[in-house]
């Protein structure tokens, strides 16, 4: 799994390439914590190149979403989910708690 981050004026974009499972999720948790620790809480997850996500990855997203929304200071939104991954999000009841956008540009534009 590879993580690349881009900092924009209003938000940060975090792009994941590859698998988000029990082996790789701690690395994402570290990266998201690093962004939050800079006082930045508006984050777009670019999932266009995400190949797989397990409950370990979902847990990191939920924990970060809770942290970003605290004190109404931000939000973590998702963009570009491949169809099979979107179906897992739906099964896990995540489509009702995350804002999900078709593409990254639209997601960035919401901040």
């Amino acid at each position: 799994m590879e993580i690349s981050t881009s900092q924009f004026k209003r938000c940060d974009v975090v792009k994941i390439t590859g698998r988000l499972d029990s082996a790789t999720s701690p690395k994402l948790a570290e990266e998201l914590a690093r962004i939050n620790n800079k006082g930045r809480f508006k984050i777009v997850m670019d999932f266009t190149q995400l190949e797989f996500i397990s409950s370990a990855g979902l847990r990191v997203l939920i924990a970060t979403l809770k942290n970003c929304k605290r004190y109404n200071r931000g939000e973590l939104v998702l963009a570009g989910l491949p169809a099979p991954i979107l179906s897992v999000f739906d099964l896990a009841g995540f489509t009702s708690i995350f804002k999900i956008y078709d593409d990254v540009l639209t997601a960035v534009g919401t901040f």
């Binding site: 929304k69 897992v88 099964l91 896990a92």
Partner: peptide, 22 residues
């Protein structure tokens, strides 16, 4: 509880739930 609001979401138990669903 997959219909719970964000603040009430538990961090564990989702893996086995997904296995059963899939």
């Amino acid at each position: 509880d997959i219909k719970a609001q964000l603040k009430d979401r538990k961090n564990h138990g989702l893996g086995f739930f997904l296995m059963c669903q899939l």
